[in-house]
Design a protein around this nucleic acid. Structure first.
Lengths: 222, 222
DNA sequence: TTCACCAATTCTGAATGCAAAATGGCGACA
DNA sequence: TGTCGCCATTTTGCATTCAGAATTGGTGAA
């Protein structure tokens, strides 16, 4: 198994919640689960720690990072900034073919909205957002966006929506597609930010802060 | 030596150019220079590779990453987005005391401009930008900003400036401070973006693309 | 002289072993 | 009975070791 594969596997386990937030990560167990030795696993854990997914406690091993409400707010804020930037850049650089792709995904998404199929709706939604990022043609931006969204993905794409909010979101997406087709970068940027601000409010209202696993009150968190 | 210390040391060597861009990094040499064994060094290299400072070639070791013009442009673009976001957030959250600190750094910077002391000027400049980031009160943002600026620091703070551009930069900084004092988030955001756009043009004009170390023509780059 | 091929060396990547630190349990004492 | 301190066990962090791949140098043939 390649180094990057180990990183991906463990990252997936963290993001999918297979390793729950706040849980300790016993190296030995993960080693035998992944059928590798401790050295490559430890390398992967350090990388994931640098990404903010894992918390390293010196001489006390590693834990899956917990996301507080504050973390979630911070991540959403940055995500807003990144999407806004991507929107502006995308309007300058996107090809007609790519616009058509986004339009297709949008149409599919609206259809799933009509069917009230939340899962498929979210899938198309994500496709659209990622297409806009990709259209910005900036690998640095793409990388940071990937890292940030990965951490809020469960919150972003799992939160149930009220009919009212869902309708608003679809409406916003109409505006997003429209701005993109008009190549109105400033407009798109504003819409994306508002869109994400609303999403953030949803998520925070839903109370998606990740709880501590062993919240013994006298143990202060490092 | 702690893990984070190893990462920092090697990162510093890369950013300072002690390990030149494109240079191969023989693990054994660095090990004895840092007085550590290969295991912790390799962990650090993987982390730095995830940060984009190091390029891992499977079974062929690692190289210090080279920055192309495109990389530089991408990094500046993202930097613009992050600073713009930070400017808006800072205007909402900055304290009067922090504004005073920025104002003091600004005054000092203008004085160094009067003395044509580029080094001290850049020092104050950086203080101001970092203070704005810090005032945004978003650790995720701070972390990404730190990572992005580290990679363009040499270009950003080493490029010589024409008198004309320098004067413009100072003028822009007046506007930055002014917007901050008025807590005009949107205005600050725009000024910061223009400021960085100008900076980027300077840097790219100066031709700061990092050359290959061993550009043997028949060796294709991975 | 130049190219191709092969052996030897060097270097990377991963597993194992060892010392140090932390965790948990047991007993002593207040 | 509850708390503190000490010792055994577990786990981490690192050095060392081992296997495999890549590079280098050399040899021979065209």
């Amino acid at each position: 198994m390649l180094h990057e594969e180990v990183v991906s596997r463990v990252r997936a386990m963290l993001l999918d919640g297979e390793i729950p937030p706040g849980a300790r990560i016993p190296e030995r167990d993960l080693c035998e689960k992944l059928q590798i030795s401790r050295t490559p696993l430890r390398e992967a854990l350090k990388v994931l720690a640098a990404e903010g997914l894992v918390q390293l406690l010196p001489n006390r091993g590693s834990r899956a990072a917990r996301l507080t409400d504050k973390d979630m707010r911070d991540l959403f804020e940055v995500c807003q900034g990144l999407e806004a930037l991507a929107g502006e850049l995308a309007c300058e650089r996107i090809t007609e073919a790519e616009i058509a792709d986004v339009a297709a995904a949008h149409t599919a998404m609206v259809r799933h909205y009509g069917d009230r199929d939340l899962l498929q709706y979210y899938r198309c939604n994500r496709t659209i957002h990622e297409a806009i990022i990709a259209a910005a043609g900036n690998p640095v931006l793409s990388g940071l966006y990937e890292s940030v969204t990965a951490r809020i993905r469960r919150a972003r794409y799992v939160t149930p929506m009220t009919p009212r909010r869902w309708a608003l979101a679809v409406q916003e997406h109409e505006a997003i597609l429209n701005a993109l087709q008009r190549r109105d970068g400033v407009g798109l940027s504003h819409i994306l930010r508002a869109h994400l601000r609303h999403k953030r409010e949803e998520v925070l209202q839903a109370g998606f802060a990740e709880q501590d696993e062993a919240p013994a009150p006298w143990q202060r968190q490092a």
